[in-house]
Design a protein around this nucleic acid. Structure first.
Lengths: 188, 188
DNA sequence: CACAAAAAGTGATCTACATCACTTCAAAAC
DNA sequence: GTTTTGAAGTGATGTAGATCACTTTTTGTG
């Protein structure tokens, strides 16, 4: 477990350095959780107590449309943050599902704890701001790719940008992420 | 001009209250700028000194693809923030253009000034974090809409959600935002 | 006002991708 | 080791939306 905490510290320190004393304040705010493949981290309509940092494993965040089709908003693996951030931040019920594609382990951070943490270690506010910012940039890139590229180009770019993810995820899920059917994807 | 500052203050105070003393620190960080229709706020390949809060007017942020077609990432009108946030934050050249659809006025905030501001008035860090967060949520919604809805549904939802914007923007630009051609949009 | 330029509409045709139906293959589960 | 289940491939066909070519309408400008 200690190594998991070290790994989280390293992740945070990619953005802001922490003294040992500061880290000793930060670490206890995170609690550990384990889920097996196919188990839900977040279910639609339910409150979202935490945001989650992935120690190990792989999750998908998705919505189900009126025809029952699944549309994937985000894949998250080791070192990624995931949650229904809107529901989390505003204490409202989730509008999406998040479940595990593989057995997974998480560090969980509650909203109140995040606020205490940012209050005690102001640097962490900056950490979360920058993380949120990175997320924004990534989504902007994805919108551009949906607007400008064909499905095949999007698939090839995904393979280039996230080859490890592509290997770990069934193609039908990649299709649901790229906005094509699995049949079309299999013809590329 | 004073009323413009009041309007900015009101905008900030929708998220965090400021004392008069605090506001007197905040306000001087913002400088005023005017542009006419068709003038550029941000040009691709150039550095982005500021982020901009729109006092009056309407802008579009867009990319040009390899076929010369324009794809719109964001429309911004009164009370909106706009910039190439990635280029701004990381002091790298812009990857998009932003220009004015109408004559426009802005409050400009430089990166260093934003940092000083957040340092002097820590509440403002929270303001920017929440704004960034809202942006993230909006982009997530747009991705879902691109994945799940037909072009016609996206158009109808845009009319519902932003009727004032739709009235002010030529349809060919709405098409470039929705990811359809203007011909298709005109058949809805 | 007159004329140029941009915005918008429309028909004919084309194509990327969806849908449906079926097969193949691999991996769990019994 | 046989059976069940889910992932993946593939053919036939349908369709939303793109493209191209042209017309009409609106807006802006000397």
């Amino acid at each position: 477990m200690e190594q998991h905490y070290q790994s989280l510290r390293k992740h945070i320190e990619e953005i802001c350095e922490l003294t040992d004393a500061e880290w000793n304040v930060v670490a206890p705010f995170f609690t550990h959780r384990t889920l097996k493949k196919h188990q839900f981290l977040i279910q639609k309509e339910q409150l979202v107590p935490c945001e989650y940092w992935i120690i190990k494993g792989l999750t998908k965040a998705y919505a189900i449309d009126s025809n029952g089709k699944e549309h994937i908003l985000q894949f998250a693996m080791e070192q990624y943050w995931t949650s229904d951030f809107n529901a989390f931040q505003n204490k409202i019920p989730a509008t999406i599902f998040i479940d595990c594609i593989e057995d997974s382990e998480f560090f969980c951070l509650k909203l109140e704890d995040r606020e205490h943490l940012c209050h005690e270690i102001p640097k962490m506010t900056n950490f979360f701001r920058i993380k949120s910012h990175h997320g924004y940039i990534a989504l902007q890139q994805r919108i551009l790719s949906l607007l400008t590229e064909t499905a095949e180009e999007r698939y090839n770019n995904l393979i280039k940008k996230m080859p490890k993810l592509v290997q770990r995820v069934p193609k039908k899920l990649l299709a649901a992420y790229l906005g094509v059917t699995r049949e079309t994807l299999s013809r590329f």
